[in-house]
Design a protein around this nucleic acid. Structure first.
Lengths: 192, 192
DNA sequence: CGCGCGATTGAGTAATTTCAAATCTAGTGG
DNA sequence: CCACTAGATTTGAAATTACTCAATCGCGCG
């Protein structure tokens, strides 16, 4: 019997490809396990970006801080999402983004080396990563569309449609940052 | 000797992976060639999304039209970029986006079936698509960051930095749509 | 109970949009 | 080659929207 977090990894991968127990043994060795608490930072600006993270549970925000100190949220991450400062991760540069835990949970960590090794050795895993990237690409495109929606009302409704669960569990001021408006403006939106 | 457009395809693929002539013969059969003129639509809302397109030359815009008739530009595409209505393409649904040619050029067309067949039969091609998706993902993330930048000035400068060539060859009103502001506001920005 | 954080409200200010009109430009046909 | 036209750009002014700053409210937790 595997520990719980490896069970989760297996079922996550099995959503996309079918793998044998032997193959999974090859894969699982590349992942390490961490518990993350609220307000904890997984990555901060200037850090080395050693890992990418597969979210097992909890909610996280991935964001930049602009020169005025304002936080620009690129995406939220929840169960079964992958996250890291990908520009820095892929190019092995220092982080320009932050990742902060909004709701405590657990993640699995893997290095770029691991990703590339797994993809190179197992065609199936290359396929797995391609499919996951495809989904991430589609989600980001949705995000762009949402940001371009003319009215705040539309942006908010779209957000509510896409992430009904986050609406409950994420403070409104963070949702405002995600939508790109001030918290006061968002507050006024649904008080009318 | 190959026709010109297949030479371009080969060099495009060879930027990522190394392939033999035999392998390329397998690949090239999946692509058909089209010339596109200015203002021509490759995809319109409601169409079946049969193909994805590799841009050999020219400039294209990929956009939604919202309920007010406003165009929301998700991305521009130029040489060596892939484009289509990906949400519809991957799910084989009707298009919700448009692709219009801004500057005439040529594209190669491939079906979803072709993509999946190539990726399944050649591990190298699965790798190729993964890397291209990675790049597309990073570009979209840049785009999100740009859209969240607080001031229009910043958004414009970032755009100019990323796409100096488009600045020349794309009408300003289209750049305004890309940045998410009215053309009047953009015009006022650099008249001061 | 009181502290701290998030959410709300108000007022004044700044930025952007909209609508209308004028100007400029590139491409077309005579 | 020139005149013409459609489209693109610019400008102005009013209206709208969102932002900032400050104060207040509400609630969970020590």
């Amino acid at each position: 019997m595997q520990p719980y977090h490896l069970e989760k990894l297996k079922s996550h991968i099995s959503q996309i490809i079918s793998i044998s127990d032997e193959e999974f043994d090859l894969i699982s060795g590349h992942f390490s396990h961490r518990k993350i608490r609220r307000k904890q930072y997984l990555i901060g600006q200037g850090d080395d970006v050693t890992y990418e993270y597969l979210v097992l549970s909890g909610i996280y925000k991935v964001f930049y801080v602009d020169e005025n100190g304002k936080e620009l949220i690129v995406q939220f991450a929840k169960e079964n999402w992958w996250m890291t400062d990908y520009p820095a991760f892929f190019r092995q540069q220092k982080a320009t983004m932050y990742i902060e835990c909004i709701q405590e949970g657990e993640v699995l960590c893997a290095t770029l080396q691991s990703r590339e090794t797994l993809a190179a050795n197992l065609h199936k895993m290359e396929h797995f990563y391609r499919i996951k990237l495809t989904n991430g690409y589609l989600a980001l495109q949705q995000r762009v569309k949402l940001l371009l929606s003319s009215t705040l009302q539309q942006r908010y409704e779209e957000f509510a449609r896409l992430y009904p669960d986050l609406l409950q569990s994420v403070p409104k001021k963070i949702i405002a940052e995600y939508l790109g408006v001030s918290r006061e403006t968002l507050s006024r939106l649904y008080s009318q």
